[in-house]
Protein backbone atom coordinates (compact mmCIF):
# COMPACT_ATOMS: atom_id res chain seq x y z
CA UNK A 1 0.00 0.00 0.00
CA UNK A 2 1.42 3.36 -1.07
CA UNK A 3 0.24 6.85 -0.32
CA UNK A 4 0.43 9.29 -3.24
CA UNK A 5 -0.39 12.96 -3.28
CA UNK A 6 -1.63 13.69 -6.77
CA UNK A 7 -2.82 17.16 -7.75
CA UNK A 8 -3.57 17.98 -4.14
CA UNK A 9 -5.51 14.80 -3.40
CA UNK A 10 -4.21 11.88 -1.34
CA UNK A 11 -4.65 8.36 -2.67
CA UNK A 12 -3.79 4.96 -1.21
CA UNK A 13 -2.94 2.46 -3.91
CA UNK A 14 -2.30 -1.27 -3.74
CA UNK A 15 0.19 -2.16 -6.43
CA UNK A 16 3.48 -3.99 -6.59
CA UNK A 17 6.45 -1.78 -5.59
CA UNK A 18 8.00 -1.85 -9.07
CA UNK A 19 4.86 -0.49 -10.76
CA UNK A 20 5.84 2.73 -12.55
CA UNK A 21 4.06 5.89 -11.44
CA UNK A 22 2.71 6.20 -15.01
CA UNK A 23 0.63 3.05 -14.70
CA UNK A 24 -0.59 3.94 -11.24
CA UNK A 25 -1.86 7.23 -12.67
CA UNK A 26 -3.35 5.73 -15.81
CA UNK A 27 -4.63 2.33 -14.72
CA UNK A 28 -5.17 2.59 -10.96
CA UNK A 29 -6.29 6.21 -10.61
CA UNK A 30 -7.78 6.39 -14.13
CA UNK A 31 -6.06 9.70 -14.89
CA UNK A 32 -5.32 9.25 -18.57
CA UNK A 33 -3.94 12.68 -19.45
CA UNK A 34 -0.39 11.46 -18.84
CA UNK A 35 0.67 9.43 -21.87
CA UNK A 36 2.74 6.34 -22.60
CA UNK A 37 5.21 6.51 -25.48
CA UNK A 38 8.25 4.35 -24.86
CA UNK A 39 8.43 3.07 -21.29
CA UNK A 40 12.18 3.73 -21.23
CA UNK A 41 12.54 7.44 -20.41
CA UNK A 42 13.29 8.12 -24.08
CA UNK A 43 10.31 10.18 -25.30
CA UNK A 44 8.94 12.38 -22.50
CA UNK A 45 5.25 11.64 -23.20
CA UNK A 46 4.80 10.55 -19.56
CA UNK A 47 6.36 13.65 -17.95
CA UNK A 48 4.86 14.73 -14.60
CA UNK A 49 6.19 16.88 -11.77
CA UNK A 50 7.44 15.16 -8.62
CA UNK A 51 7.82 17.75 -5.90
CA UNK A 52 7.99 20.30 -8.72
CA UNK A 53 10.72 18.52 -10.69
CA UNK A 54 9.90 17.10 -14.15
CA UNK A 55 10.32 13.31 -14.23
CA UNK A 56 9.50 10.51 -16.64
CA UNK A 57 6.74 8.70 -14.79
CA UNK A 58 7.25 5.53 -16.86
CA UNK A 59 10.60 5.06 -15.16
CA UNK A 60 9.81 6.06 -11.57
CA UNK A 61 8.57 3.14 -9.48
CA UNK A 62 5.63 3.95 -7.24
CA UNK A 63 7.80 3.18 -4.25
CA UNK A 64 10.01 6.16 -5.15
CA UNK A 65 7.01 8.48 -5.53
CA UNK A 66 5.29 7.53 -2.32
CA UNK A 67 4.74 10.45 0.02
CA UNK A 68 5.75 12.99 -2.61
CA UNK A 69 3.63 15.53 -4.44
CA UNK A 70 2.76 14.62 -8.01
CA UNK A 71 1.38 17.19 -10.45
CA UNK A 72 -0.04 16.00 -13.78
CA UNK A 73 -1.39 17.66 -16.91
CA UNK A 74 -4.88 17.57 -15.42
CA UNK A 75 -3.85 20.13 -12.76
CA UNK A 76 -0.81 21.95 -14.12
CA UNK A 77 -3.09 24.84 -15.11
CA UNK A 78 -3.41 25.66 -11.41
CA UNK A 79 0.22 26.84 -11.36
CA UNK A 80 1.25 30.22 -12.79
CA UNK A 81 3.75 28.69 -15.21
CA UNK A 82 1.39 25.92 -16.26
CA UNK A 83 -1.42 28.38 -16.88
CA UNK A 84 0.83 30.61 -18.99
CA UNK A 85 2.05 27.63 -20.99
CA UNK A 86 -1.45 26.34 -21.72
CA UNK A 87 -2.56 29.82 -22.73
CA UNK A 88 0.36 30.20 -25.14
CA UNK A 89 -0.22 26.69 -26.52
CA UNK A 90 -3.83 27.61 -27.24
CA UNK A 91 -2.99 30.97 -28.76
CA UNK A 92 -0.41 29.48 -31.14
CA UNK A 93 -2.46 26.34 -31.84
CA UNK A 94 0.58 24.19 -31.08
CA UNK A 95 -0.82 20.63 -31.04
CA UNK A 96 -1.32 18.47 -34.08
CA UNK A 97 -2.28 14.92 -33.07
CA UNK A 98 -1.82 16.14 -29.51
CA UNK A 99 -0.51 12.90 -28.08
CA UNK A 100 2.89 14.22 -26.97
CA UNK A 101 1.53 17.53 -25.74
CA UNK A 102 0.80 16.60 -22.12
CA UNK A 103 4.47 15.78 -21.72
CA UNK A 104 5.58 18.85 -23.68
CA UNK A 105 3.47 21.14 -21.53
CA UNK A 106 4.71 19.53 -18.29
CA UNK A 107 8.35 19.95 -19.37
CA UNK A 108 7.75 23.53 -20.49
CA UNK A 109 5.93 24.48 -17.28
CA UNK A 110 8.75 23.05 -15.18
CA UNK A 111 11.29 24.99 -17.23
CA UNK A 112 9.47 28.28 -16.79
CA UNK A 113 8.93 27.71 -13.08
CA UNK A 114 12.69 27.38 -12.74
CA UNK A 115 13.82 29.84 -15.43
CA UNK A 116 11.29 32.57 -16.17
CA UNK A 117 13.26 33.87 -19.17
CA UNK A 118 14.81 30.83 -20.86
CA UNK A 119 17.30 31.16 -23.71
CA UNK A 120 17.12 28.97 -26.80
CA UNK A 121 19.81 26.79 -25.25
CA UNK A 122 17.74 26.46 -22.07
CA UNK A 123 14.75 25.43 -24.17
CA UNK A 124 16.82 22.87 -26.06
CA UNK A 125 18.14 21.40 -22.83
CA UNK A 126 14.76 21.26 -21.12
CA UNK A 127 12.75 20.02 -24.10
CA UNK A 128 15.09 17.66 -25.98
CA UNK A 129 13.76 14.74 -23.95
CA UNK A 130 10.28 15.25 -25.39
CA UNK A 131 9.68 13.75 -28.82
CA UNK A 132 6.93 15.05 -31.10
CA UNK A 133 6.39 12.85 -34.15
CA UNK A 134 4.11 15.50 -35.63
CA UNK A 135 7.04 17.92 -35.58
CA UNK A 136 5.55 20.81 -33.60
CA UNK A 137 8.96 21.83 -32.23
CA UNK A 138 9.10 25.32 -33.71
CA UNK A 139 5.64 26.11 -32.35
CA UNK A 140 6.64 24.71 -28.96
CA UNK A 141 9.68 26.97 -28.86
CA UNK A 142 7.64 30.03 -29.85
CA UNK A 143 4.92 29.22 -27.30
CA UNK A 144 7.47 28.85 -24.49
CA UNK A 145 8.82 32.30 -25.34
CA UNK A 146 5.31 33.76 -25.39
CA UNK A 147 4.51 32.15 -22.05
CA UNK A 148 7.75 33.54 -20.60
CA UNK A 149 6.83 37.03 -21.81
CA UNK A 150 3.36 36.62 -20.34
CA UNK A 151 4.77 35.57 -16.96
CA UNK A 152 7.23 38.46 -17.06
CA UNK A 153 4.32 40.87 -17.36
CA UNK A 154 3.13 39.89 -13.91
CA UNK A 155 0.79 37.11 -15.13
Amino acid sequence: MYTLHVNGKTHSVEVTPDTPLLWVLRDTLNMTGTKFGCGEALCGACTVHLDGVPVRSCSIPVSAAAGKHVTTIEAVGATAAGRAVQKAWLALDVPQCGYCQSGQIMSAAALLARKPAPTDADIDAAMAGNICRCGTYNQIRAAIKDAAADLGHGG
Partner: peptide, 27 residues
Protein backbone atom coordinates in the same frame (compact mmCIF):
# COMPACT_ATOMS: atom_id res chain seq x y z
CA UNK B 1 -8.92 29.91 -38.09
CA UNK B 2 -7.92 28.32 -34.80
CA UNK B 3 -8.28 24.57 -34.62
CA UNK B 4 -11.42 23.45 -32.83
CA UNK B 5 -9.67 20.51 -31.16
CA UNK B 6 -6.82 22.41 -29.50
CA UNK B 7 -8.54 22.87 -26.10
CA UNK B 8 -8.81 19.07 -25.77
CA UNK B 9 -5.11 18.70 -26.47
CA UNK B 10 -3.62 20.98 -23.84
CA UNK B 11 -5.20 19.75 -20.63
CA UNK B 12 -5.15 15.97 -20.93
CA UNK B 13 -8.88 15.70 -21.62
CA UNK B 14 -8.68 14.50 -25.24
CA UNK B 15 -9.46 10.81 -25.48
CA UNK B 16 -7.07 8.69 -27.54
CA UNK B 17 -7.35 4.96 -28.15
CA UNK B 18 -5.02 4.28 -25.25
CA UNK B 19 -7.40 6.14 -22.91
CA UNK B 20 -10.42 3.95 -23.59
CA UNK B 21 -11.71 2.35 -20.41
CA UNK B 22 -14.52 -0.18 -20.62
CA UNK B 23 -16.11 -1.39 -17.38
CA UNK B 24 -15.12 -4.97 -16.58
CA UNK B 25 -12.26 -4.80 -19.05
CA UNK B 26 -8.72 -6.17 -18.91
CA UNK B 27 -5.41 -5.23 -20.48
Amino acid sequence: LDRLDTPLKIDGSGRFGIDVRVPGGYT
